[in-house]
Design a protein around this nucleic acid. Sequence first.
DNA 1: AATGAATGAGGTTTCATTCAT
DNA 2: GATGAATGAAACCTCATTCAT
Lengths: 198, 198, 198, 198
Amino acid sequence: MEAAEARRRDKRRQILDAAVTVFSEKGFHKSRVSDVARAGGVADGTIYLYFKSKDAILIAIFEEAMTEMIAGARTAMANVRDPLERLRSFALFHMDNVEAGRDTAKVLQVELRLSNTFMKEYKPTALQQYLDLIGDAIIEGQQRGQVRPEVNPIIARRAFFGALDEIAMQWILTPRARYGLKESAEQIAELFVRGLRA
Amino acid sequence: MEAAEARRRDKRRQILDAAVTVFSEKGFHKSRVSDVARAGGVADGTIYLYFKSKDAILIAIFEEAMTEMIAGARTAMANVRDPLERLRSFALFHMDNVEAGRDTAKVLQVELRLSNTFMKEYKPTALQQYLDLIGDAIIEGQQRGQVRPEVNPIIARRAFFGALDEIAMQWILTPRARYGLKESAEQIAELFVRGLRA
Amino acid sequence: MEAAEARRRDKRRQILDAAVTVFSEKGFHKSRVSDVARAGGVADGTIYLYFKSKDAILIAIFEEAMTEMIAGARTAMANVRDPLERLRSFALFHMDNVEAGRDTAKVLQVELRLSNTFMKEYKPTALQQYLDLIGDAIIEGQQRGQVRPEVNPIIARRAFFGALDEIAMQWILTPRARYGLKESAEQIAELFVRGLRA
Amino acid sequence: MEAAEARRRDKRRQILDAAVTVFSEKGFHKSRVSDVARAGGVADGTIYLYFKSKDAILIAIFEEAMTEMIAGARTAMANVRDPLERLRSFALFHMDNVEAGRDTAKVLQVELRLSNTFMKEYKPTALQQYLDLIGDAIIEGQQRGQVRPEVNPIIARRAFFGALDEIAMQWILTPRARYGLKESAEQIAELFVRGLRA
DNA sequence: AATGAATGAGGTTTCATTCAT
DNA sequence: GATGAATGAAACCTCATTCAT
């Protein structure tokens, strides 16, 4: 029954897509499960055949998005030899991704922070891998002598991510952002590349 | 009746302090007004003699904290001539502040993002002034020729803040943080000072 | 799905009937929605699948009762030629109706007056039709020369209704009324028939 | 301390007058005790030095108004020999009174019906005397042979009152009433005088 | 598998009343 | 006597979730 499973995946995606749209518009808390159901063209109860709870939808959105982002960032960084240039690629990819999936990004960044529980339990695991992409580049940079040895990669990678994240957040919340995300990505990358350089 | 007003201020503070404690423990949404009342040693109804609504408490916490932070940061940066060193002072002050008022910081950073409305309406105004402290230092640095002219201060200041904020957030959410905030402040300041330098 | 709609109507009626009982016993304001729910054998939330608010239940009771009363009075007066005799039929019907649906009458008469808003917005429209039945008979009486021409039908019809209503109210509020409503209806009808007669 | 008692009476009246204004504007339920206090120029707590409860204010308004009305109606009927003419005097007085004290009348007629308890416990006693003025005239009319002996005075008097009351209520609730109360009083009196006449 | 009617727990806020000053 | 800050009970309604069909 490969077809049945495919159908199942389709409906799951249908719900997930609807949830992203609804959550990004009204916010997670103000969105009712029935809003998502209507937007997804299914009955309320159907949601629960695919997700354990309303929270689980949010978590699924997060997990899928992170998986994609990690893969995407990996690809974007794959052919870049210079570790510091890889950071630039990361920044550009991240911002491209935010720009391309504004709704998803909005849900991830704004709505996810709702719950302490979530932040503590789910975010770290998936985020870790994303941060590792940054951290690994920094460490490799240190091994090659390109990055100052006194830099703490754990701190630096999160600072880098925080810088990108904050700019992305502002862009998401501002209807007409003054600066394009691409320019921001380049500025931030340049700041960090110079800041890290030995 | 100066005494009456003083008593009024005291009770307001009492409620506000209780709210910070309660919100930081359980989160804003999961905290009931009666939790705050109990923690503050007042009746439920009394809360409403001092605050228009539960939301208004959160807003008051934010406004008071920001006012203090802006004043504190200003003081911390006041006697530092070198604009780039001023960024270092800012970073150290910010992290000190987070460390000293962990509960408040937690409420600010985690709970405040709850509401899009809040983010859009209240955050910018007060946050702007805080960011200006960073931005002004960068601009002065550019005028003195210490900071690269191609740096966009609007982007750079928010990136700096984002870096600090993300580290602070992690520290807040992690029961036993691996790195002290002071070290993080120094690392981030060093990264940006070097990154900005002409 | 005719069955589904029928079931829906049934449950609506079930709630409405329960509400009449509860409201007439404790009064609208002192009745909690959960009282109505319990009496109707449904959950609190179910009420809100059928009525927008607690007020809406009261309005529905009023509208249904008025619709029935108007139809009933019309039928009762239909085969009576003499316009003045028609007033007697109206009086008898009205009192029969009050006697038969004591709870409903109680809710209508006592509880409805709760809200100025309600009185102004809803009562007139439906009540008007009820009063028209009286007014039309009086006007026809005047056209036939049976009723004094100087009688103002607008005033007279409301006076007639007021007389009936006041007696009904007393009967409703008095556990053991001294006089049957039927006797009262006849007395009032006789008073007005003679009073109106040319 | 006659002066002290006079002052006490004054403040009581001050509160009562304020209450009539406030209740007639917003309705009893929507009026807060603090509204009455503010309108009366006293503190919230002061109300309770003069009245046991919010309900007690309403009751006091009712009792004072009824006392005045009974006395007024008595005076108006005092010098009228013909019992049936006395009914006309009553009707005119009642409507004059409603017109002169529209706010008070509104409170009495609309707001008083709020509470079953009130209707049952307080209204009858005071209202009884008012109704007796009507009933006595009818009975005297029967003794003199002017009124049909088969008329039940208990029913007739209440019907008469109900007719007046309903018209008054409509006038109160209608911003621009089409008919003056004086005309209504005369119409109703004429209807009943003819209706009762032997 | 899909539906959607039914459930019922849960929390903010109001406001009559009290009482220390 | 007067004040008004403090109290705390009380209830409507929402909405995530379930389950009979």
